[in-house]
Structure formats: C-alpha cells, structure tokens
Nucleic acid binder design. Structure first.
Lengths: 350, 350
DNA sequence: TTGTAAGCGTTATCAC
DNA sequence: GTGATAACGCTTACAA
C-alpha cells in the first residue's frame, strides 16, 4: 500500500480517486502520494473499488458470439474501433467478457451475463442476446447499452443505425432515376435490422408514389438457390428494373443477386440496377462498388459509449440514439432502359 | 442476501460458489439455497467475490499503439482471435487498456503501464514497448507475457514466432530450386522480428552453401523510393535471381518489390523469383500468392495466454515459447532461368 | 487538512 | 455439515 510511503490510506484514496467531495488537499501531500504511487507502481484494486464505491472506470463489452471470430468481416471489429477510441477519450478501460466464446462457459451458462457487474456498465453486441438474464440486469438498474436497435426489455438503452431512413433514401434515389418496379431481397429471419430495412424500403416506395404489390419483398433463407438467373429473368420480364438486397451476415443475398444478373446476361447498370442496403462482402472487393449505404459502425460504437458514460455520470434514464447511414453512390444504379418504364403489356406469369 | 431465505451465508457461498474445498452439503440444504436464490433473483456480486478471492480472472492486453486502429490489417486482430479463445477457455475475461489510444492518456503517460496491475496478469503487444516501466513490473514479479520475442528485460516471458527458422526454410527452398544469388530487402529498424528474419535468411544461405557477399541484405527506410525498376534491373543483371522481402507493418517492402519487378518488365516467377517473409498486405489480395510463410498469429495469442495463465496458476518462472510458422508454397517462386545460374561474366556495376 | 473507523459482499478458516 | 468471524482493499462519513 502506498500508505507506507508517507501518509494515510484516506489521503491516498482522495488523491488517486476522483475526490468528488471537493476536499482540499495540500499540494505537498498530494505530490508525496503521487510520487509514492509511481515509485511503487501502485494501482487501486478495481474489485475493491467497485465494492466500496460502486465504480471502477471499467466499461464492459459483452457479445453473445465470439468478439473476434476467425473471419474479420464477421466481427465487431468496426464497432470496437469506435468503442475503444471513445472509451479512451473518456478515461475508461474496456473489459471484454469472453463468456460466449467457443470454449468458454458459453453465453447460455447461467451467470455468464452476470459477470458484467464487475464493470460500471456494459455494452451489448450481437443480434441474439437472450432476454431473460438481460431483463433482470435492466430491472436492477445496471447501466447497459445495446449496439443496434432493440425494443425487447423495456428501458434498455441502445445505439442503432438508421437503416429505415437510409433504405428509404436508396429507394427514392432509384425512383428519382425513373424506376417504377423495385424488388427487395431479404433474409428470412426476424432480426430488427432486417425489419427496419424492409420498413424503410416500403416507406421509400410510398414516398415516391410507387406501388408495392405482392412479391415486392422477397424473403429467402437460401438466396444462392432461389435467386438464380431464371428467377431474375422472369422478374425482369415482368417489368422489374431494379433489385435491392439487404446486407446479411454472409453477404449471400447480394452475392446471389449479382450472380443471377450476370447469369441472366444482363448488364449492370445499363439493363438492371442493383442496390445494396449495407456494405458488400469482402470477397467482392474487386467488383464495382454497389450503390447503397454504409453502416457507420465505428460511430455507432462511439455513440454507444457516449450513451453509457452519460448513463453512468448523471444517472439519466436510458436513452436511444439513431446514427445516420451515409448514402453511397456506387456504380450499380442508372436510369432504367426506355422500354421498361411502364410494365410491359404481356401478362405476368403467375 | 439469500441468507434470509433459510440458512447461513457460508452455506450460500458454498452452494453457489465453486466449493473448491470439496465440502459436502446436504441435498436438502442445497436445494433450499438454490430455490431461495432463484426466488430473490440473487446473484453473487462478482466484485466482492474477486476481492475476497484476491484474484479477478482478468487478463490485461496492453499495446502501445491503439489496439483497434482504423485499418484492420494494421491491427492485432489475428492475435486477439487466439487470445480471446484461449482466455475464454480458461475462464478469464480480458481487459483492454486503452492507455495508448489516441485521445487517451497516451502510452508515454507516466503510470500508463502501471494500470495493468488491475489485472491478474498482462499480455504485451507491439514492437515498441518502452523498457523502463516494464522493467519494474517484471522486477515486482507481475505476470507478464510479451507477444513476440523480446530479450530486453531479463526474465520477461514471451511467445514468439520462429521467424528465423521459417526464413531459413524459404531461403533453402530457393536454393533447392537452383538460385545462387538471393537478396533480402528489410526495413531499416531494430525490431527483433526483423533481426530474426535476417538471421534466418543468412543461416539459410549458409546451410545451402551459398555466399552472402556485401549487399546481400538491403536495409531501406523508404522501399518505395529505393527499390525501383532501375535498381531491380541492376541487381538482376548482377546475377540475382531471387528477391526476398520481409513483412513490414505497412507491407511497403513487398509492394515496392513487386512494383519494381513489373516496372522492370520481368516476369514472375519465370525470370525472377520473389518470396515474402510473412503475409502480403491486404490491398494485394488479388495478386498471385507470394511464396513465403504465414505468421500463426492466433496461435501465438493462444500460446501467450497459456503461458500467462500457467504463470498465474503455479507461479512457475516466466518461460518463452516459439511457435512454428507454416511454409506457404505460393506461386512467385520457380527455378532460375538457365543463363543466370552462375553470375554473368560482365563486371557488376558499383 | 488529515487520520480513524465502519462497512461493501464474498471467501476461507475455524470451531461447533 | 454448518455457522460465526476475520480478512480482502477500498471509499466515505465523521472525528481530530
């Protein structure tokens, strides 16, 4: 203990700790403590600190899949960039709770989530955060911020991307170019992110005064199998001039779409326009840049940290923040070819 | 407290905690405690248990550059993959010290390194870890493991890649193919990793019975400027048939080399062979795969964690581990063209 | 301005 | 087997 190096324990705590009480300490004493601490390399024990004061300047990061999966592009890397920066700027260190990594106790393990109580507050990552343990944490008033929209446990704070607005913007861009029939290809799951995109897509259609007949939104669990050249040619023949895919974990929807178009022998963007609600998968890095929007992951991470530290500081009630996604012009969209403006007279095949 | 719900505190701890002592507890009591805990939604406070147990199951990760730079390829990502997995498997959480991120206190800030003491032990990342603060930590017996070889403070444990052996292997591969004159292009710094590669390179030359005349190792601080088409043509004219570059943070050496070769109008591998001691930069992903070796970063991370937890567990003295790098055949190496086998008769330009 | 003492919620060591 | 009781290292009234 640094107390050996001069003064008393209280003083040490006052000097090294926040000294929220505004107690005045002699410059000399202060320096003596600092000096001693440096000499001994003394650091207050976070656990003890947290136990006594309920605060230790540690922010937790908990994800229900490995935080660092083998494949970079499937990871939370971009989020962490922002999280780390913002946390550092605010004087917090990060605790990565590994509860859910393969080999670990597993996210389902009872108490896995409870470990986050070691930190002052915690960031939650991932689509599939189990509700039950979460609910208790929230009920206990433990400061939590989820990365991504999440309505589930009421009162949970979150920082999400405004997929809806960005998706609407893409659709309106398409409409402005003259497209009248636009299709959305999405995953067949219930993720909030997918739902938001679909809502934005439909809103965009509505805003542009375009109809959204049956079949405008295509849900598929296996894009590679269902979205093929024949399918695409059929839709194109029906008068569809633009296809929109959502970004998925695997990027399969977009991959299937581009493959189908080239399989159908159609040129992009001269004959068909393609848009992607998110970023393209890494392995398509060489291909022409898709029109769509970028998910501001780093900014979302930073925003989440800001939300969390605000929560910690003034005990405000949990709030939520929507971060704007930047429109990406890309080069896969153009005005539709003349003949396709109105739906062709030939009756659509059932 | 669950003690209200039946029995005593000790019993609760025994039931809910690990019960390492192997103490036997009545089934009935046990159930009563479990039941009560569930009813009250009671969860042992992790901070308290860690305080009492004098261990907090936290492994530190400290780097002197931001742990998550904006560009993925410049990051410690691959290391973290292994670190996270192994830590999780062993029941440890990770503390990411943000001390060195932009916006933070800065790595140079006094006491920045001392903060790691809040963890049970710490992993050190990065080439340029300052020695002085480190030395004290080591002297105090704080469990530390450096990622990468490091002789500096005696008694520091490390987990490194066997660059020397892998580099030698690459050179011998080249020699086996018939190359007699091979050059190494390396950075002009004093990193251990560079030194190891150079040593392995020279060892490989020696093992193959090849000479290493002056100029065999080219040190350059600005590869892009010095390694150009003219330079390469000159070396080639002198009889050099293979060029080896080390992997650097920026990948510049390799990038310069490949650019110089194509600038000189030489075909790879028909006219010149190229090898890379490490992995190619991400932006060259589309190019033919360089012959060389892969740095087993994830495995290094996992090994480091293993070393560290061993240190924690049985208090063994710090040890070091060398992880083998896998040879990567690639497609940038082939036997040298006939005429170049012996150095050409024409005198080398000075 | 500085020191004293009482917890914070567990775990560990003993008697019972 | 189970229950007191003393740490664990710190913060925070409160006393000096």
């Amino acid at each position: 203990m640094a107390r050996l190096a001069g003064v008393s324990q209280t003083t040490v705590s006052l000097v090294l700790g926040g000294n929220k009480q505004g107690i005045v300490i002699q410059e000399a004493t202060r320096d003596r403590v600092l000096e001693a601490a440096r000499t001994l390399g003394y650091v207050p024990d976070p656990a003890a600190r947290r136990l006594a004061a309920a605060r230790n300047n540690l922010l937790g990061v908990f994800s229900f899949t490995a935080t660092f999966p083998t494949e970079v592009e499937h990871s939370y890397y971009r989020f962490l960039v922002g999280i780390e920066q913002e946390a550092a700027a605010r004087g917090y260190d990060l605790v990565l709770f590994t509860g859910s990594s393969s080999g670990g106790a597993g996210a389902g393990a009872p108490g896995a989530l409870d470990r986050v109580r070691l930190a002052d507050g915690c960031l939650l990552l991932g689509r599939h955060v189990p509700s039950e343990p979460l609910r208790r944490l929230v009920a206990d008033g433990f400061p939590l911020v989820h990365l991504g929209r999440r309505d589930e446990p009421e009162g949970l704070a979150w920082a999400g991307a405004d997929y809806a607005a960005a998706s609407a913007e893409v659709v309106e861009h398409l409409a402005g170019l003259g497209h009248r029939r636009v299709l959305l290809v999405r995953e067949d799951d219930d993720a909030q992110a997918s739902a938001d995109r679909q809502r934005g897509f439909l809103d965009g259609l509505a805003a542009a005064g375009l109809p959204a007949p049956e079949g405008t939104v295509v849900r598929t669990a296996r894009p590679a199998a269902e979205i093929d050249a024949a399918w695409l040619r059929a839709r194109h023949a029906e008068g569809v001039t633009a296809f929109v895919a959502e970004e998925t974990d695997t990027g399969d929807a977009w991959r299937a779409l581009t493959a189908a178009v080239s399989g159908a022998g159609l040129r992009v963007p001269e004959e068909v326009s393609l848009a992607l609600l998110g970023s393209p998968p890494a392995d398509l890095a060489g291909a022409p840049e898709p029109t769509g929007f970028d998910i501001p992951r780093a900014e979302m991470g930073a925003t989440a940290v800001r939300l969390l530290t605000d929560l910690l500081a003034d005990g405000h009630r949990p709030s939520q923040a929507l971060v704007t996604c930047a429109f990406r012009p890309g080069s896969t969209v153009a005005p539709p070819p003349r003949r396709a403006s109105p739906p062709p007279p030939r009756p659509p095949s059932p």
